[in-house]
Computed example of a mutant assay.
Amino acid sequence: MILAVALLLGVAVVAGCAPAALHRMLQRRADPQLVLMTWGALVATTFTTVTAALTIVVLPTHGSAPLLVQLLHHCWTALQHGSAPPVHLVAGLLLPTTVGVLSARVSTRFLRHTRHQRREHRRHLELLRVAARQEAGAFPIMWLPHPEPMAYSVAGTPSFVVATDGVRHRLGADAAAVLEHERAHLRGRHHLLVGLAEALSRSAPWIPLMRRSPDLVRTAVELAADRSAAHQHGPGSVRSALLRMTGGRTGPLPSHALGMANSAVALRLHHLNGLRTAPGRTRWALTSGMVGLTAATLPTLAGIALLPVLAMATCFAFGF
Rank of each mutant, 00 (worst) to 15 (best):
M1I: 09
G10S: 03
A21C: 03
A21E: 04
L26A: 02
R28G: 04
A30E: 14
L34F: 02
M37F: 01
T38S: 15
W39G: 10
L42M: 05
T45V: 02
F47W: 11
F47P: 03
A53H: 04
L54S: 05
P60G: 11
A65Q: 14
V69I: 08
H74K: 07
T77H: 12
P85N: 05
H88S: 07
L89Y: 05
L95A: 13
T97S: 02
T108A: 11
F110A: 07
L111K: 06
R115F: 06
L127C: 02
L127I: 00
A132G: 06
Q134L: 12
E135G: 01
E135A: 08
G137K: 08
A138F: 07
M142N: 02
H146R: 02
V154N: 01
P158Y: 00
V161S: 08
V161M: 06
R170F: 00
L171E: 09
G172D: 08
A175P: 15
H181R: 11
H185A: 04
L200T: 07
S203W: 01
I207A: 09
R212P: 02
S213M: 03
D215K: 08
R218W: 00
E222F: 00
A224I: 09
A225I: 13
A230H: 08
Q232N: 12
L242V: 10
T250E: 10
A257H: 03
G259F: 00
A266S: 14
L267G: 09
L269Q: 13
T277N: 14
S288C: 05
M290V: 13
V291L: 09
A295L: 05
A295M: 07
A296W: 11
L301S: 09
L301Q: 08
V309N: 03
